[in-house]
Structures are given as structure tokens and as C-alpha cells.
């Protein structure tokens, strides 16, 4: 019974946490390169909408996923251009991206409202599940290929960031862009690529929502997940390996809020998933204050040659 509850909770944590994980992983790279992008919500909406339209029109969900990622990436270049090239205020530019993305998706989405995808990405089916060893079938009951891909991405992105030379360049650009520039690293290029990658991942997260999680289009369907991703980026100490922890913890709390309503007042439970990031952020900021871990040194500061970052 307890084991069933645990596995069942983790099962939903995987299904619900995946878009959060994808967007968080992307934002980790963006912020590691020294750029703050608060436009995740907008990029997710754009990704969710474009991928839905393509999947609906072609009946090919995977094509939709690819398009959602590409559109999310292209859309993020607006932020890259204004914040890196024009050195605009990154907070403002990111917020504008969110408003723009949400606005575009909802305006264009009017005529698609309530349409249902007949060919969504389905959860793993019986044959594959029953071939899994004990317990795992319960754990991955509501998962699909994208869930597995996102976990692999977390590992690969961790390896790239901390164990490879380009990863070192990326981190350096977020710590001390002037030094990087002096060493001959193209700071602008690195930052552009990081923002682009963040957009691709956010678009992917949005696409997961409209093609796998809830295969339909309705306005406001990302429901603030982009903002959670901003919080989870901090919660994971800007480290891809910790990102799944935060995303799945959030998913688990969300599920438990409903499972435990019989025993605990729903008012309290329903606030837990939102209370948790706040508590986590307080905890992280204290830790960061004491040990100076994580926060990229030049986060949010536009880089201009000749001025110390």
C-alpha cells in the first residue's frame, strides 16, 4: 500500500515534472552563461501552440515536438538580441518576452481553442511496461519517450557543463566575461547559443504539455510553469544534475496534495507546491550567502567590451 503510494506518486511526478525539468535545464545554461531570461513562460506558450498546430495538421506528434523546440529557440533570439547585442535590461526584456509569447499564442490560438489532438504522444503501452522489472512498470506507467529523453538530457547537460571544455567556456562567460573575452572566447556567441538552447528547451517543455501531457489547445495552458522553472533553476544550484530533483519534488507534492486530502485539510495541502519553492529559495539563498555557491558571477549583467563585468 505504502509502496504503491510512493511509486504512484513518483509516476505522476515524472509525468508532471517533465516540462518543468526541460525548461529548468534550459534556463540553467542561459543563466550559467550570464543571461537572465524571464521569458520562459512565453517561450513555453509559443512552443506549446506551434507544436500543437503542427501535430494537429500533420497528425505527427514528433514533428510537432521538433517544431515546438525550433520555434521556442527562434523566439528566444528576441531576448538574445535585446539583452546581448543591445545590452538592454535583461529583466525587462525577459518579462516582455513572456507577455509577447503568451499574447501571440493566445491570439493566434483563438480559433484552435478546444481542439483535441487525435494523435498525441502516448504513455508507454502494456507490452513495454510489463517487460520492465518489478515496480518499474508502476513507476513509468504515465511516462513516455520524452520523459526518458529529459532525464538523459539532464545527465548529458551536466557532463557537458562540468566535464568538457566548451562547458567551461560557457560557465566562464557567466562568471567573468571580460576575462573570457581576453582569452579569445567569443562571449556574444556563447551567450547567444546559451539563450538559443534555453529557448529550445522551453519550447520542448511547452510542446510536451500540449502534445503529451494534455493533448489539446486551450489558452493559458502552461499555467505559470515557466515561472516555476525560474525558481527551480535557483533551487538546483544552477546544476543540471539537481534539476530533476526539484522538478519531480514539485510534481510529487502536486500529486500528494490530492492523494492526502482525506487526511489533511485541502487548503493546506494545495498550498504546499507553492510554499515549497519559497522555502527552498530561502534555504538556497542562505546557503549561497554563506558558501557563495552556484550564482553565476555576472548573471544579469550585459557584457560590454572594455567595461569590467
Amino acid at each position: 500500500m505504502v509502496l504503491e503510494l510512493i511509486l504512484g506518486t513518483l509516476n505522476r511526478a515524472l509525468a508532471y515534472g517533465t516540462p518543468l525539468l526541460l525548461a529548468t535545464l534550459g534556463e540553467i545554461y542561459v543563466e550559467r552563461a550570464g543571461v537572465l531570461n524571464l521569458g520562459i513562460e512565453g517561450m513555453m506558450m509559443i512552443g506549446a501552440f506551434s507544436s500543437f498546430v503542427v501535430a494537429y495538421a500533420t497528425s505527427n506528434p514528433w514533428l510537432g515536438i521538433v517544431v515546438g523546440a525550433i520555434v521556442g529557440g527562434l523566439f528566444s533570439l528576441i531576448h538574445a538580441f535585446s539583452s546581448i547585442t543591445l545590452r538592454a535590461n535583461q529583466t525587462v526584456s525577459g518579462l516582455a518576452l513572456t507577455m509577447l509569447g503568451t499574447g501571440i499564442a493566445e491570439t493566434l490560438g483563438r480559433s484552435w481553442e478546444g481542439k483535441v489532438l487525435t494523435s498525441p504522444i502516448k504513455s508507454f503501452s502494456g507490452d513495454f511496461l510489463s517487460s520492465l522489472p518489478g515496480g518499474l512498470d508502476l513507476l513509468f506507467k504515465d511516462s513516455n519517450l520524452l520523459v526518458v529523453v529529459s532525464i538523459i538530457l539532464a545527465l548529458v547537460m551536466w557532463f557537458f557543463l562540468f566535464k568538457t571544455k566548451p562547458g567551461l567556456f560557457l560557465r566562464s562567460c557567466g562568471e567573468n566575461p571580460s576575462a573570457c573575452d581576453a582569452l579569445g572566447i567569443n562571449v556574444w556567441k556563447v551567450r547567444y547559443l546559451a539563450v538559443l538552447w534555453g529557448g529550445i528547451m522551453a519550447g520542448l517543455g511547452g510542446a510536451y504539455i500540449s502534445i503529451a501531457y494534455r493533448p489539446t489547445w486551450s489558452s493559458g495552458m502552461t499555467q505559470g510553469m515557466g515561472w516555476l522553472a525560474v525558481a527551480l533553476t535557483i533551487f538546483s544550484f544552477w546544476n543540471p544534475i539537481y534539476a530533476p530533483l526539484g522538478a519531480y519534488l514539485f510534481g510529487a507534492l502536486f500529486h500528494l496534495a490530492f492523494r492526502l486530502q482525506v487526511f489533511v485539510a485541502p487548503e493546506f495541502l494545495n498550498s504546499l507546491p507553492y510554499l515549497f519553492p519559497v522555502i527552498a529559495l530561502v534555504f538556497v539563498s542562505r546557503l549561497a550567502f554563506r558558501k557563495k555557491i552556484g550564482v553565476p558571477g555576472s548573471l544579469g549583467k550585459p557584457y560590454e567590451r572594455g567595461k569590467s563585468g
Partner: peptide, 17 residues
């Protein structure tokens, strides 16, 4: 749900639970 009249994610997770 006690969140909003329109809460598709919450409704989905509640139904799954």
C-alpha cells in the same frame, strides 16, 4: 482544487490521484 475555476493541470492531477 481550490485554485481557480480554470485549472487544467490541477484538474488533471486530481483526477489522476
Amino acid at each position: 482544487l481550490q485554485s481557480a475555476w480554470y485549472d487544467p493541470q490541477g484538474a488533471k492531477e486530481a483526477a489522476e490521484a
